[in-house]
């Protein structure tokens, strides 16, 4: 206990200094990894804070037709298996191809939980299992989910899946099981570990597309904030006023 407390104390001190250092050099152009990573890493015992809001920026113009590296990475990261039953198999992220009704312009893009600020799934959940973390990540607490699926009825993005069968071979960092509802966690385990990115974003970058950016929307110096300021983006179903944490560019 005391050893860990010391380590955490050390971490906080170090983080504090790192923060000062980052602030001092904020005017100097840094690589995006350092700029976003150091500001967002938190100590193990530090709870998520409403000073941050995790978000995602998807650039549809960079998303390649036929590529589903993000989907594969997500499935692998969270242990989602293809059981050959597409109607009941869980999909946390999916590729959708859309055509403009008026112009015929075709876009392809990844679609997942939009991590709404005023999330309908959180409103309707009878037990409070559907919840939003202080830093904006919408999650399902499987310990209190009773599997009523009302959240799936309420979600405007069809972002949620119900686990329709007994599961084995779950990965350690992503518990999931029969009878509960689940959806994109924004790789909360990676963000809490200080990775500063998600499996889908990393896979997209590894393919050289860089269509998915993760970052802190409340940090004006984060890569995502700067990009959101620089060019027009949109929320899906903006008419519902949900203030989504996922924004789309180039649609």
């Amino acid at each position: 206990m005391s050893v860990e407390a010391n380590i955490n104390q050390y971490r906080r001190r170090f983080l504090g200094q790192a923060g000062v250092a980052t602030a001092a050099v904020a005017t100097v152009p840094l690589t995006s990894l350092l700029a976003s990573g150091s500001a967002q890493a938190k100590a193990l015992d530090e709870p998520a804070s409403s000073d941050n809001r995790w978000g995602m920026l998807v650039d549809a113009s960079k998303c390649a037709d036929g590529c589903k590296a993000c989907v594969d990475a997500c499935n692998d990261e969270h242990g989602l298996e293809d059981l050959g039953r597409p109607e009941t198999d869980a999909q946390w992220i999916r590729k959708v191809t859309i055509k403009d009704k008026a112009t015929g312009h075709i876009d392809t893009l990844p679609l997942m939980c939009q991590h709404c600020e005023t999330a309908p799934c959180v409103d309707v959940c009878p037990t409070g299992a559907s919840m939003r973390r202080a830093d904006g990540i919408v999650l399902v607490d499987r310990h209190t989910c009773i599997g009523c699926r009302y959240c799936m009825m309420a979600c405007p993005y069809k972002a949620r899946s119900f686990v329709h069968e007994v599961l084995e071979n779950q990965v350690t960092h992503q518990p999931r099981g029969k009878g509960c509802v689940e959806s994109c966690t924004l790789c909360v385990h990676k963000l809490d570990a200080g990775d500063g990115s998600t499996a889908c974003s990393e896979a997209c970058a590894a393919e050289g597309h860089h269509a998915i950016i993760i970052g802190d929307l409340k940090d004006p110096n984060s890569d995502i904030s700067r990009q959101l300021r620089a060019s027009p983006t949109r929320q899906l179903r903006a008419d519902l006023g949900l203030n989504t944490g996922v924004r789309y560019k180039g649609l």
């Binding site: 590729k95 191809t97 055509k99 876009d107 679609l111 993005y157």
Partner: peptide, 16 residues
């Protein structure tokens, strides 16, 4: 669901 009211969905693995 009308996720993209002004678009036609031509491909999706999730029955959009």
């Amino acid at each position: 669901l009308p996720i993209f009211p002004d678009k036609e969905i031509i491909e999706s693995s999730f029955f959009d």
